[in-house]
């Protein structure tokens, strides 16, 4: 009997003990919230900006599904289902603008990758630091030029009567550049890379700067040539950045640089065949037809396709090389 009395019976936890635990948990949460308060306050301005600038305008999606009548307001306007989308894709320019947008983007993404990386590698190989410090800002300068200035620079080259090309190279057979659509894919591509490749190469330059110099020294001792060092060290080390930049570019494949496609060709209607993109079409639709619904439908289309493309390409990257996937 004595032995039995020494055995401690297993009893359920008292409610008092549970209350104590709950109270402790609550106190801990309060303390955590208090310590995080400055961080939340610091986050607040950015959060307000994002909500106002990026999220609230999303309600504008409504416009894509309404037949907008400004006299009664957006919310009172009648719903029209997918009519705006149908109208967008049924126009005779739909194929041209989608083809132009996607093709320009594809070529520019791929060519841009090669050009930016090449510039970055060449810059990294400049042993004269002084020269590098001059060249870097010089190649980045064009990205600071606004579309309007850019359009006048291009006009200076391509003007039929006074343009540099027609007064020098094509003196005998002047070309009316602003009436010949077939030249513009090349003109826009050259202008785009002149303007953007310096800036986009900076990202790769920064990545190259972060590569361990020991790798190159090791390769030198192993007898690797400069080209082999680039192939076997620089490019593999740039792969995560290349993937990231590609994914970001793919997400914007249905967007285009409005300034480049509208200002540089001076909005010439004769060039629409090769310069019309979704963005310029939306602008023209607003100006000429005052069709807000269709313009909004085009934006929704760009956003949804862009989002889907990022998800799909990221899934492909994750399958091929999971380390470099975005998410």
């Amino acid at each position: 009997m004595a032995a039995e009395s020494n055995v401690q019976p297993i009893v359920p936890r008292s409610s008092q003990y549970d209350n104590l635990l709950a109270q402790r948990k609550k106190n801990r949460r309060k303390a955590q919230a208090r310590s995080a308060l400055p961080l939340y306050l610091m986050m607040l301005p950015g959060l307000i900006y994002i909500i106002c600038n990026n999220y609230l305008p999303m309600f504008g999606i409504l416009i894509a599904f309404k037949k907008v009548n400004f006299s009664i307001g957006i919310f009172e306007s009648p719903w029209c289902g997918l009519d705006n989308f149908e109208f967008l894709f049924k126009t005779k320019d739909a194929w041209i603008m989608i083809r132009n947008t996607v093709c320009y983007n594809l070529v520019w993404i791929l060519l841009g990758l090669v050009i930016s990386i090449t510039i970055a590698i060449l810059m990294a190989e400049i042993s004269n630091r002084k020269a590098a410090k001059i060249i870097q800002p010089v190649i980045c300068f064009p990205s600071m030029v606004s579309a309007v200035i850019l359009s006048f620079l291009v006009y200076g080259f391509l003007s039929k009567s006074y343009g540099f090309l027609n007064t020098t190279i094509y003196k005998d057979h002047p070309i009316n550049w602003y009436a010949s659509a077939q030249y513009w894919p090349f003109i826009l591509t050259i202008v785009h890379f002149w303007q953007s490749s310096g800036q986009s190469s900076i990202i790769y330059m920064a990545s190259i700067g972060g590569i361990d110099k020991g790798l190159y020294e090791s390769a030198r001792i192993d007898g690797a040539s400069k080209m082999q060092q680039i192939r076997h060290i620089t490019l593999p080390m740039l792969r995560p950045m290349i993937t990231l930049m590609m994914l970001m570019a793919i997400g914007k494949i249905f967007n285009s640089d409005f300034g480049m496609f509208y200002q540089v060709p001076l909005g010439q209607g004769l060039l629409i065949k090769t310069t019309q993109t979704i963005d310029t079409y939306v602008y023209r639709a607003l100006l000429e037809m005052n069709n807000v619904g269709m313009s909004s439908a085009a934006s929704v289309f760009q956003a949804i396709i862009g989002f889907l493309l990022v998800i799909i390409s990221n899934a492909i990257v994750r399958k091929v090389d999971s380390e470099n996937a975005l998410f």
Partner: peptide, 20 residues
């Protein structure tokens, strides 16, 4: 030149080629 010196070097962080 370094490759002709008949020497091999091991670096602090090994410097292995990442893609290989």
């Amino acid at each position: 030149p370094p490759p002709d010196r008949n020497m091999a070097m091991i670096f602090q962080n090994y410097s292995l080629y990442p893609g290989f």
